[in-house]
Simulated assay, not measured.
Amino acid sequence: MKFALNQMGFPENSLHTNAELLADAGYDGIEPNLTVDGPLWDDEAVDELADRIDELELDVPAISTTLHWEQQLSSADKETRKAGIEAGKRMIEVADTLDAGAVLIVPAVVDEETPYDKAYDRALDSVQRLAVVGSKYEVTICIENVWNDFLLSPLEFAEFIDHASKSGPVGAYFDVGNVKRFGHPEQWIRILSERIKRIHVKDYRTDVDTIDAFTYPLEGDVDWIAVNEALTAIGYDGWVTAEVPPYRTAPERMLPRVCSDLNHLFS
């Protein structure tokens, strides 16, 4: 396994500074996010980041974003979907420059204004469009399971990926903690199997029924032994990226501690 940290947990504002901190803490990689006005929109900044990451002997597991919660790929509004697709295309370009090989996509958001069936059709079309672009760059479009009331079973998740893959490389960015709310991560892993291309980890407390239930690995109720056994059973030996916030006090202390826990769990 190789270990990385998502930008959610970065203690500093500068990607370069965070890359240095991650290298010092023993991580193998850094996972930056495409944000509304962040540096990943600037080609020169991305090239400079690529050089610094290379100097630090780090890799990039994927490019992620939170933009698709607003620029929804399942929106009934064509301009909103278009903006989401354009953001996805930029992520693919950045992934190509940083040799990431994958982008993290939230495919849909189901709510009162977006019925499930309509969300499915629009999301599938949007992901297929991105998959066509991804195939040109050899970048996989990785669908993450998130709290978006969409793809709520591993069987449906697998079917969606299989349909979308007809247009290009599409896989699962499986988030262990996100599933614990309504399922068993180890079961999802075995069903999704080779479709899993990347892994996000965080823990989840089942005695808390809010978003505050999320916590750091080893501090919740995820059965990490079962998760590791399931990953071994499907032959997964790729990236495991922590998606957790920095500590409120001494945020830099979180980096080496989580890295140590990831090594304990998966090495």
Rank of each mutant, 00 (worst) to 15 (best):
V109H: 09
E86K: 15
L22N: 01
A172E: 08
D237T: 00
A164V: 06
D54K: 14
R195D: 07
L56V: 07
W69T: 06
L49D: 00
D77R: 11
V227G: 02
P217S: 10
M91K: 03
A100V: 06
V132I: 09
A108H: 04
V103W: 04
Y216I: 08
V240L: 03
L104E: 03
E55P: 05
A19N: 06
L73Q: 00
L155I: 13
V170L: 00
A23R: 00
H16Y: 09
T210I: 10
E12G: 05
V36Q: 14
D43I: 10
Y247K: 12
E86R: 09
L73M: 05
W41F: 10
V222R: 05
K89Q: 09
A19W: 02
V103G: 06
A19Y: 02
D24G: 14
L192P: 04
P245L: 01
P246M: 05
A23K: 04
I141S: 03
D212V: 07
T206P: 10
L152Q: 15
K78W: 15
K136F: 12
D59A: 15
V60N: 05
E186A: 11
E144Y: 07
Q128R: 15
A108L: 04
G220R: 08
I189F: 04
M1I: 01
F150H: 02
S153T: 15
E229M: 10
Q187F: 11
S167H: 15
K78T: 14
Q71F: 13
I189T: 05
V201D: 04
A164M: 09
T206A: 10
V106F: 03
F10N: 03
A76H: 09
I225G: 07
Q128A: 09
D37H: 14
R198Q: 11
T65M: 06
T206M: 12
S165I: 08
T210R: 11
A172M: 10
